[in-house]
């Protein structure tokens, strides 16, 4: 096995162009597990850990929207520590990833490139309409998160491309993330749900994980809730949501799922749990929006 260690980003792109079959490795929390289990035997590994710029994040503006550009090599622990206020949904999802050691090593870019249907980072990115910045020696392009996942562990990336960064709009309203696992920590998702309210544009974002071959938004649920909030003038004058709204929202989220039975849970349970999580996370987000509770589900200590 060849082990390529580019010292900078342009060298990395060169290497990927010359070895399109090379498997990029950053934190190694997916790749090394697959190697250990002998599920993969790549001819070439492309080590990205020497590339400083991948570990940087910055505030940007994209089309007039305040955003954060997160380098592909930023680990979960820094998303939690440094971006919890700007990107609360992503930080909440990051907290549910593995153990502290995994969160120190695992990266958002790696999560995207692996494109597991169970990737914890994906649902909040969907709920935020994030964009993925891909680059190759041919140039750079940015695609919406919704177009990034094309199948189970498959993405829209070309063989010579690497994930450079993720652009995530800064939150303008409450965000929540919930994950079902049969253990209270360190667990692969049975299913996940993310919600983001965008009062500035009167919008609602959602993301479902482990609920279909790819992470996906619950588009109908988003449209229904956004319209219901707008119709009832709830954005400007927030009042308690009628049960009929949260119920219907939960129904539509469950309806968006296309889960399977597997070793972690049944399709029936996943659908049920998504309905419950959708109702609960909406109620937490809405309570926060109404400002009548301080509690946002965040851990009170590290």
């Amino acid at each position: 096995m060849d082990f390529l260690r580019p010292a900078c980003w342009s060298e990395a792109l060169e290497a990927k162009a010359n070895h399109p079959d090379a498997t990029p490795v950053a934190g190694g929390t997916d790749v090394m597990v697959e190697l250990n289990f002998d599920h993969r035997r790549p001819e070439t590994l492309l080590d990205l850990t020497r590339i400083e710029q991948l570990r940087e994040w910055s505030r940007t503006e994209r089309d007039g929207v305040a955003s954060v550009r997160i380098g592909a090599g930023v680990p979960y622990s820094r998303l939690i520590d440094e971006l919890g206020t700007s990107l609360p949904g992503l930080a909440m999802a990051s907290r549910t990833v593995g153990s502290p050691q995994i969160r120190n090593r695992g990266t958002l870019g790696g999560n995207l490139a692996s494109a597991s249907p169970a990737g914890d980072g994906h649902p909040p990115l969907l709920a935020s309409n994030a964009e993925i910045e891909l680059e190759s020696v041919r140039g750079s392009r940015t695609i919406p998160i919704g177009e990034f996942f094309t199948g189970v562990k498959r993405t829209a990336m070309a063989p010579d491309e690497l994930v450079a960064a993720v652009h995530v709009p800064v939150s303008t309203g409450p965000q929540q993330f919930s994950k079902i696992g049969t253990r209270n920590a360190m667990v692969i998702a049975v299913c996940t749900f993310a919600i983001a309210l965008w009062p500035d544009r009167r919008g609602v974002g959602t993301g479902l994980g482990s609920a279909a071959p790819t992470p996906r938004p619950a588009t109908e649920a988003e449209a229904f809730l956004a319209a219901a909030l707008t119709d009832a003038d709830q954005w400007d004058d927030p009042r308690p949501l009628p049960d009929s709204i949260t119920e219907r929202f939960g129904e539509l989220v469950a309806h968006a799922a296309a889960p399977i039975d597997d070793v972690r849970g049944t399709a029936g349970y996943r659908t049920h749990a998504l309905r419950v999580l959708a109702r609960r996370t909406l109620s937490w987000a809405w309570d926060e929006y109404r400002g009548d509770t301080e509690f946002s589900g965040r851990q009170r200590c590290a």
Partner: peptide, 11 residues
Amino acid sequence: PGGASNTTHGE
């Protein structure tokens, strides 16, 4: 229940 995965705030 659910622990770090944020599935309930008591509901």
